[in-house]
Each structure stands twice: as C-alpha cells, then as structure tokens.
C-alpha cells in the first residue's frame, strides 16, 4: 500500500512518489512515496533491510531509482543530479558511521564544509572571510568544540566525530538534512543533547532522521514514518505508530 501525499498543492521540501530500486531482483525500495514539508522534522524507523539507507542513497543521487519521482522544493528532479550537485542544491547527509576527514583538524573540516567555493579554481584561491569566520565560530560553539579546533579529527572520540559531522552539515547551510542513526554509539547524555540540538536545528531546516533508538525518537517529538520492505508501512505521531498492529508485527514485536 502506498500512501498518497496528502497535500500535493502544498509546498514540500522533499517529494517522493513511486520510487523503486532493485538489486539483482531484490527490491530494496518498492514504490516508496513520502513527502516532507518545509521546516518539518521527520523520524524514519524500520527493521534492517527496510530500505532506509537506499532511500537516502536515492535522495542524495548516489543510487539511480528504477522508476519514480524525487523532487526537491517541488522543482528539482533529484534523480538527474549526482551527489555533489544534490549537496549543492541544499541537501546535507550524515552517515551512520561518522565520516569526517581524519587527517584534517576540526577547524579545517568545518572550513571545508562552508557553503560556496566548490570549484577547483575557487578552492585554490580560497581565503577565509570575516563572515565565514563568524559562521565557523558559531558552529564551533553550537557543537561545543571551540576548545578543540586544532585537534585532528582522527583523534576525536566517537561521539565528538558525530557532532563534528553534524557541524559540517550545518556549515553547508542545507535546507534539508538527512541524518542516519545519529545516536548510535553515543552515551545517553550525548543522545539527549543531540536530540535537543536537532530540535534547535528544526527551526531553520527540514530534517529527516533515521534512528533505531525509540527514546531518542520520543525526545524528537515529531512525525514518524515506518518503512518496511521498501515502502511505507505507517505514518503519524509516535504514539499512533506504536499502536499500529502492523508496525507491532513487523518491527516492535509484541
């Protein structure tokens, strides 16, 4: 069963309709449809193999869908862009495994992520402007790393890497953030802090958060979409989803 977007006239940041991807006969996504509104935060849950990562791959241009529509801001057909182009449109992605540039410092990591200056020539002539410096200071404060800006990213703890990567996402100033299991490997305290951070972010950005940790999702206080076998099984508030029989069957367990 596919859920038709509720307000097709209403503006959306991300609009997916009938997206299917298969690998050698295995359907990773099966006619997936979903819609994220501007400023919305959405949590995605689902068992392993439900297609969460593949969905992100499709949105970010890493994987070509076999069929279906993926629209960004109702105008950009994301299936025709590659990763870099999608990123430059304003979609940031955080991986499940923290992926920061380990042999660069925290500062250099963040500096690289700052919006603009993506061409080879610009990169060669790049000088940090005062404006950019302010932006960096702001992000450093937000992710609580002002004291560590000269540390090599490889020397950070797991949780710090996660935060640095989120900081890098912010540097990109994206409209939509795709975040894959941010709480994995974090302490409870860090998890809650992250949830708070996301809620702050949601004031200016749209977020899509894939997560397994139910407490974390509860803390996010947002709409939840349950994926199963490559399509949407249920959608709604966490409470309504938790009460859904099908969701209990395939995911939560009785």
């Amino acid at each position: 069963m596919s859920i038709a977007p509720k307000h097709i006239e209403q503006p959306s940041v991300l609009y997916m309709d009938g997206v299917s991807v298969s690998f050698d006969g295995f359907k990773a996504l099966n006619s997936l449809s979903m819609c994220i509104e501007p400023g919305e935060m959405r949590a995605i849950i689902g068992p392993n193999g439900a297609g969460k990562t593949t969905m992100m791959d499709v949105i970010t241009g890493k994987t070509q869908p076999d069929c279906g529509t993926v629209l960004f801001n109702d105008q950009h057909d994301l299936t025709r862009y590659d990763e870099a182009a999608v990123a430059n449109l304003g979609i940031g992605r955080k991986f499940q495994k923290p992926s920061v540039i380990e042999s660069l410092t925290v500062f250099e990591n963040l500096e690289m992520s700052l919006r603009g200056g993506r061409s080879v020539w610009q990169a060669l002539r790049h000088r940090l402007t005062a404006e950019q410096q302010d932006k960096l200071d702001h992000i450093l404060a937000l992710i609580d790393m002002t004291a560590r800006l000269d540390t090599f990213a490889g020397n950070l703890s797991h949780g710090q890497k996660q935060w640095l990567e989120i900081g890098m996402l912010l540097g990109q100033q994206p409209q939509l953030l795709l975040i894959d299991e941010p709480a994995a490997g974090m302490t409870d305290e860090e998890t809650m802090k992250t949830a708070e951070l996301f809620k702050t972010l949601a004031q200016h950005h749209s977020l899509m958060v894939v997560e397994h940790d139910m407490d974390f999702i509860a803390a996010l206080e947002c709409r939840v979409t349950v994926l199963h076998e490559g399509s949407v099984l249920a959608e709604g508030s966490l409470a309504s989803v938790k009460a859904n029989d099908k969701v209990i069957d395939v995911y939560l367990g009785r």
């Binding site: 990123a87 042999s103 690289m112 790049h126």
Partner: peptide, 22 residues
C-alpha cells in the same frame, strides 16, 4: 590551499567530499 585540503578529504573519504558538494 583549500584545494589541498579537499584533496586530502578525497583521499580519506571520497564519499564525504562528494556529499559536501565537491
């Protein structure tokens, strides 16, 4: 230059560099 740091980024994590828009 920053170009050099992008190169290092590509060396260490090519996909990260891509998803950053390079």
């Amino acid at each position: 230059s920053k170009l050099g740091r992008v190169l290092v980024a590509i060396r260490d994590s090519e996909s990260r560099a891509r998803f950053l828009g390079y």
